[in-house]
């Protein structure tokens, strides 16, 4: 495996303004992504897990510059993404792609499938006109679609097939990096397996790098090499997937893992059940953001925000329990 870093994110912040008051001025900010850093080596998959509203999708979209960041740095193969001008960014678009969560709303109902997949290819002039049709057919075949599907419209397809169209659309541009924003959560279990297998196969064939955003931990464990756990806009734990699953360190990660329902009726686990809901990201708690729901909460947690610490082997955790 190569060790070239494809995507590197440093201290990324994205605040959404809340407008209010008489003159519609900015009254406060929602800290959707608050100081997130990670890097993804080429050909690997990084999983991003967390509950809804923790900023996983915003992170993914900010990397692609679908949303402009507030501060921080994003590097794609050593180049600063946020400093790129229009033309440079246009080139970059073919290299970074996204697969959206909902295959029902992310495909235009008015375009035939061939056009959905091929539109961007034509726009970016990736292939010669003469080869265009063959190229589209090849991409469709790679993604498990039949060539005769080209003239059909999205409503004629089932959820799993539609997700294949979304994947084909992203891969037609021959990207290096794909953000998969909950690609399987809208699908049935058996279809889920097909799509995960397809993503696997394509990664091997094309040496793709994935950022895999999901809230389903069992899926993430299967597909990702490294993992980031997010809570309320911040990263609380990062490391190799196998390390984190073997020994989750942050109390939030532990609670998250123990909440996974296991398909085994004899297994009665001691479940850590978190009290209450996620606090509002517009007004996050002082100190450690998790202290309001944490059972190990100490006095210092309420005052001082913990820093990210390496506890060995690239396994980093952001918690006062591991202060030495």
């Amino acid at each position: 495996m190569e060790n070239e870093i494809v995507v590197e994110v440093k201290n990324l912040k994205k605040y959404f303004p809340i407008k209010g008051g008489f003159f519609g001025g900015v009254t406060s900010e929602v800290k959707a992504v608050d100081d997130v850093s990670f890097s993804i080596p080429a050909g690997t998959t990084m999983g991003l897990v967390g509950e809804s509203g923790c900023g996983k999708s915003t992170t993914g979209r900010t990397i692609l510059r679908l949303i402009e960041k507030t501060s921080g740095d994003i590097f794609f193969k050593g180049e600063d993404v946020s400093a790129m001008d229009k033309n440079k960014l246009r080139e970059l678009r073919t290299k970074m792609q996204i697969i959206f969560q909902d295959p029902y709303s992310s495909l235009s109902p008015r375009l035939p499938v061939g056009e959905i997949i091929g539109e961007a290819v034509r726009e970016h002039k990736l292939v010669e006109k003469a080869e265009y049709q063959d190229y589209i057919t090849k991409v469709m075949k790679d993604c498990g679609l039949q060539p005769y599907h080209k003239d059909r419209y999205p409503h004629e397809f089932s959820g799993g097939q539609r997700q294949r169209i979304c994947i084909a659309r992203a891969l037609a541009l021959n990207p290096d990096f794909v953000v998969c924003d909950e690609p399987v959560s809208a699908l049935d279990v058996s279809i889920q397996a097909q799509i995960i297998n397809l993503l696997w196969k394509l990664q091997e064939e094309r040496k793709l790098t994935y950022l895999f955003i999901s809230h389903d931990l069992s899926v993430v464990e299967h597909i990702s090499d490294s993992l980031g756990v997010m809570y309320l806009g911040s990263m609380v734990e990062t490391g190799k997937t196998s390390d984190i699953f073997a020994e989750p360190l942050h109390p939030y990660t532990q609670a998250l893992f123990s909440a996974i329902p296991m398909p085994d009726p004899d297994l009665k686990k001691d479940r850590i059940i978190l009290e209450g809901d996620i606090p509002s990201p517009a007004n996050p708690p002082k100190g450690c953001k998790f202290h309001t729901r944490c059972k190990h909460c100490m006095d210092c947690c309420k005052e001082v925000a913990p820093e990210m610490k390496d506890v060995g082997g690239g396994h980093c955790v952001c918690c006062h329990l591991y202060d030495k």
Binding site: G160, Q194, S218, E221
Partner: peptide
């Protein structure tokens, strides 16, 4: 059997997930 096999389970690593063929 197919339904159970196609669901990824935490702690059991497989190279390829089983998927029921057809629809």
């Amino acid at each position: 059997v197919g339904l159970m096999k196609s669901k990824p389970v935490v702690g059991q690593h497989v190279k390829q997930l089983y998927s029921i063929p057809g629809s």
